[in-house]
Design a protein around this nucleic acid. Structure first.
Lengths: 80, 80
DNA sequence: TCAATTGTGGTAGAATATTGCCACAATATT
DNA sequence: AATATTGTGGCAATATTCTACCACAATTGA
């Protein structure tokens, strides 16, 4: 499949995640604790280095007290 | 983590996917062709048997010509 | 009736995410 | 100055998805 598009999607998701985290004044380690994830993983996710599973999305949403769909609420053009 | 919640999340996503697919009058095999996925995989996803990656979500969204976030637009309570 | 389509279930190998840990430079705090 | 915190990167082991098949019962259509 389109590798750039996938890469871009991961990056967009990461940026969105960062937005939520920073807005709540959380560090990687603080969010990690709430999510039951390792802090280094969150770093990689925010940088778009990982193609995470939706179960992990759920973890993140829980930690941020947000609905999962909010983490996908960013502008994204499917065809380019 | 909460295994039931994760399971429920996958199932909800699957149902949402089914909604979109059926609304467009597509069979598993037809959607699979558009998504560059195997039809048996889509069956498993709709039944909530797989914890898919967001890259796969993107594939499905492309095939359905929908924004990825729409596939997560279902009611879901984080605490229960 | 015969052929095609559909949803479902299984399998096996390759690829990738997850988990848990460590270490370090840069920055912030006391 | 000394200490704590933060973001980042790497690593190994385990778990899971992904990919590409095949097969079959049930339904649909000609």
């Amino acid at each position: 499949m389109n590798k750039e598009l996938k890469q871009q999607f991961q990056t967009s998701f990461g940026k969105q995640l960062e937005k939520f985290r920073v807005l709540q004044g959380l560090s990687y380690r603080q969010l990690a604790q709430r999510c039951d994830l390792d802090h280094s993983v969150i770093s990689k996710i925010e940088k778009g280095e990982v193609n995470i599973q939706i179960g992990t999305v759920l973890e993140l949403a829980k930690g941020l007290k947000a609905h999962p769909k909010e983490l996908f609420d960013f502008k994204f053009d499917l065809d380019e």
